[in-house]
Design a protein around this nucleic acid. Structure first.
Lengths: 150, 150
DNA sequence: CATCTGAGTTCAAATCGCGAACTGAGCTAC
DNA sequence: GTAGCTCAGTTCGCGATTTGAACTCAGATG
């Protein structure tokens, strides 16, 4: 093996693997869309935040658009695209692991529930036959696709 | 809001959010456990790899242990702990997103299936009433836990 | 003994991240 | 109409981190 492994994990991390990217996305998922608000909620330095937002927009995960509220001046906001919304399982899986292994004595700081049904939501591994697997991957088997080259 | 948001995502990223950490974990999940092999498979610089491995060991995600094969000299290997195995949904969610949005013309480079049942496995959001949600978070509602402070 | 391998160290150069201060446009109150 | 406020960035200097390549060192191999 002379080349690093070609892998969708690596490619995804090229986009959202930088230091603040996922925290930015967390905020946008929570409905925080304006620059200053994201800055305050994440604590990321402004210069870095600008770069991350541009990267995410360029990658098609966020969308930057101007808007204007009643009699207020024009502002910018960042919204999730379809591709961005599809990152929800990533955030959920990260949060869930932190809840389990890193929560303080007060328990998890944020609670996700199924709108309408109110039940707590978890990221699970599910096979197409409908079996829900344990989270630990012991029931998984991985194999490279046919075209192993590249 | 003067303090950055307290959040399990942020805490988790403190541990596995560095540049190479998740790629290291990907390899260990795939059964690659030796330093040089991880180095070759990820392409991470050796000095960085040493730091990441130490971080992951210190965080209790990996375990470093010496071993010796028949008549070979002693080596070190890195193994997943229970906590490490529980990161599988994170890796799977990342891979799945990359498969959907970043796969080349040859399609996804790696295939996960349910051992025994052979069916493809996906990371899904599932509520405790057993409903499987869309991946896009539209059916989710988030609220801070009671103790909003800190 | 000379060589190979595995697991790191060490090094200088380039990049990146950081906090704090600054810019500049548009609105609002005086 | 000008002083001040808000928002969305820039700029800046410093220090930490990353990088690739070369080097070390111990144990096994020929």
């Amino acid at each position: 093996m002379s080349q690093p492994r070609a892998c969708s994990v690596a490619r995804t991390l090229e986009i959202i693997g930088e230091r603040w990217s996922l925290l930015v996305l967390r905020e946008v998922f929570l409905g925080v869309r304006r620059f200053d608000a994201i800055h305050a909620a994440t604590g990321a330095p402004r210069a870095v935040l600008v770069r991350r937002l541009h990267t995410l927009v360029a990658a098609g995960v966020l969308e930057r658009r101007g808007y204007r509220e009643e009699g207020a001046r024009a502002r910018e906001e960042y919204r999730l695209t379809e591709a961005g919304r599809d990152l929800q399982p990533v955030l959920t899986a990260l949060m869930q692991w932190g809840d389990r292994y890193l929560a303080g004595p007060e328990g998890p700081p944020l609670h996700l529930s199924h709108a309408g049904c109110e039940a707590p939501v978890r990221a699970r591994l599910v096979c197409e036959h409908g079996h829900v697997l344990d989270d630990n991957g012991r029931e998984l088997s991985a194999e490279p696709a046919a075209h192993t080259a590249t």
